[in-house]
Design a protein around this nucleic acid. Sequence first.
DNA 1: TTAATAGTGTCTGTGAGACAATATCAG
DNA 2: CTGATATTGTCTCACAGACACTATTAA
Lengths: 222, 222
Amino acid sequence: MKHYPDPLALVDVALFTIREGRLALLLATRRNRDEPYCGALALPGGVIHVDEDEDAQDAARRVVRTKLGIDPPYLEQLYTFSGRLRDPRRWSLSVAYYSLVPQQVLEATHIEGLEFVPVDALPKLPFDHDAIAAMAIRRLRGKSTYSSLLTFLLPQAFTLPELHAVYEQVTGSNTNIAAFRKKVLDEGMIEPTGQRRTGGQHRAPDLYRRKGAGLQELKRTI
Amino acid sequence: MKHYPDPLALVDVALFTIREGRLALLLATRRNRDEPYCGALALPGGVIHVDEDEDAQDAARRVVRTKLGIDPPYLEQLYTFSGRLRDPRRWSLSVAYYSLVPQQVLEATHIEGLEFVPVDALPKLPFDHDAIAAMAIRRLRGKSTYSSLLTFLLPQAFTLPELHAVYEQVTGSNTNIAAFRKKVLDEGMIEPTGQRRTGGQHRAPDLYRRKGAGLQELKRTI
DNA sequence: TTAATAGTGTCTGTGAGACAATATCAG
DNA sequence: CTGATATTGTCTCACAGACACTATTAA
């Protein structure tokens, strides 16, 4: 029975938020002098800590907590990237996650070495992080159409025009808000709070919240 | 800089085919005396061989080749299962794949220790293979509606009633073949070969083939 | 009252589904 | 010709989208 050396086991996180009205990704300057691409901007990530992390999702949660000081409201596995050459150290395997965080949660957060970069202005990233980011954006776009995913980019109570703006920003589409309103409402994934947002210059919009704590999806299971 | 022990890195494969008109999964009797659950039926899998496998997909392909002697026509990553307790040996991480193979390719294949079990009659499986199988079935069902995935369960040339039968078997639905025909045809993922299947007792059905070598999908990206 | 934004109602095109009608095969 | 299966055509319903209309707010 031959014995094989273990691959390096990592997690990486593509963390989205809305920054100045644009969909943005969190990039972190790589710190530890021993690690490859030190000084470069990359997706936050790191090796799995088998003595602390219960599973890979837990490791991803720890990465976010360490970087931003918050528990990510939404965190989902994206894909596992692997291979002999993707990391200069050795054969490696990175379980990639994507996460959504409302702007407001990060308001105070201006931590040294962290940047939120609009997804249409990403720099060249080290490792295969370009591919990870691209797949995360693709997944986010896809799921936006048939789930309550985008509500995780907004505060607990939000208006329909806000949700619509995020939808257009993320999907790059330009659909009519009336149609969007009807679609979203009879999908039944959000519900009115009964309140309205006063204080604006114009008609006060109704406030909505996500129905249920977690993600809601339409039939298609993927 | 603390050093962490590496997790055990595995791949597992949920391999589907049609057996006696029913959707079935390949299960293998676990062989090696040193490994856990020896003698039990489980999804085929094994540790990643960093000196042979270029990446995890490559490892999954090797597993199928070793068990069945064929290269799987369709093989896609499903999800990565991980955790401290899922494998009795140690903290482990299994990149799970699912694969589709036409019945005809496996015709001759009756290999000792392998079984094709209908998915609605699966036994209790070791590790978290129950969860892997369940997710694979879920994914297969979901993707059946909006991709050319099911054509990988059929030979290169197939008839529309055959595709429809597979569709009903996989999704458990009971839709009308006329509607199915129209839907499938104007999705444009299959095309007529120009031939028909003669020799049956009744009207000879048109033969079709998948358009393009790989999987075709409708917009939704997942 | 006005300008601007929010929300509602009507119409239309597309696609999936049921069902009916037609076509083709072997015996 | 007959019985069985394959294929095509027609109708309907659901839904997403455009667009026009009404409602509400602060100034």
